[in-house]
Nucleic acid binder design. Structure first.
Lengths: 154, 154
DNA sequence: CTATATGCAAATTCTTTGCAAATCG
DNA sequence: CGATTTGCAAAGAATTTGCATATAG
């Protein structure tokens, strides 16, 4: 039996691609590439798992000449709104951010170590059509996160 | 062409069923049916859209002999953990609660008026199997929310 | 140069906690 | 009654804001 194409392909966000993308965002929107912002980017790239704003502030606080809280929060907001950070919700309701590429929709999250894998998938199309006719909603978007234990943790 | 059974059926949470269910929870777990808790239930039943803890406190504050903040927070936590409240995330990241029945998994949320429709669906099974083999995760659960505009708002 | 961004410290907002007094069963 | 729950007020987080100063382009 031949391998069928998967309906969902996992996506790896390379640090270089991500940083370039964010810098491009800044350039094209007239935002400036400042030292504090770059420090925030670098710190984000060091995480293997979702991070919170406070965590990021605390970790940056260890370094020399850390950006102020306000800058950290403002940068996170900017990246989050433009899709370069994705907001993750754990099963217990805590929120966190992970580097992302604009347009990526779904995440697979390890409930033990927190590692996140992004993927795309059109598997919802069928459901969306049915829901749409059944409820008379005009569907605009969706949030899908899947929880499990990764190969290492299980 | 015959109507095929839908892969997802919307679910209506009747106020009576819900309140009875919560009371049953309290009885069976040795929790007490106190006046402040009942006031919280009643207030929750008045919402047509997701509410936050602060909102609930504020609204209860209008009434005579309102429960204290602590009681409101503790009651929400209790209901949330037992599945009688579901946590909702809006597209902009705000969180809110809606009355739910334990085990219900998915929500369709109007991005204009905030009304929420719950539904069940096994449409993810296929995706989960594929993801599982592709990523070597042991899948444990998932969060699915769909955003759109309801019949009235669209 | 000048528009944008920073950092600070204070103000807000949201949530949790400890404990004496009240209350449900 | 006795165990559970409440309400308060204070502590603790998390986030936002205003504005004088610094800086990228």
């Amino acid at each position: 039996m031949p391998n069928r194409p998967l309906s969902a392909d996992t996506i790896h966000v390379s640090p270089d691609v991500w940083k370039q993308g964010v810098r491009a965002l800044w350039r094209t929107t007239g935002s400036r590439v400042t030292k504090p912002r770059v420090r925030v980017l670098d710190a984000i790239m060091r995480y293997q798992t979702p991070f919170s704003a406070e965590q990021l502030c605390a970790d940056l606080g260890q370094s020399i000449s850390p950006p102020g809280r306000a800058t950290v929060y403002r940068t996170i907001e900017q990246l989050s709104e433009s899709g370069w950070l994705a907001r993750i919700h754990t099963q217990t309701g805590e929120a966190g951010y992970v580097p992302s590429l604009p347009g990526h929709l779904h995440h697979l999250i390890c409930t033990t170590c927190g590692v996140v894998i992004a993927f795309e998938g059109c598997v919802l199309d069928d459901l969306l059509v049915r829901l749409s006719s059944q409820t008379d909603f005009a569907i605009e978007g969706h949030l899908l996160q899947i929880y499990g234990r990764c190969a290492t943790c299980k």
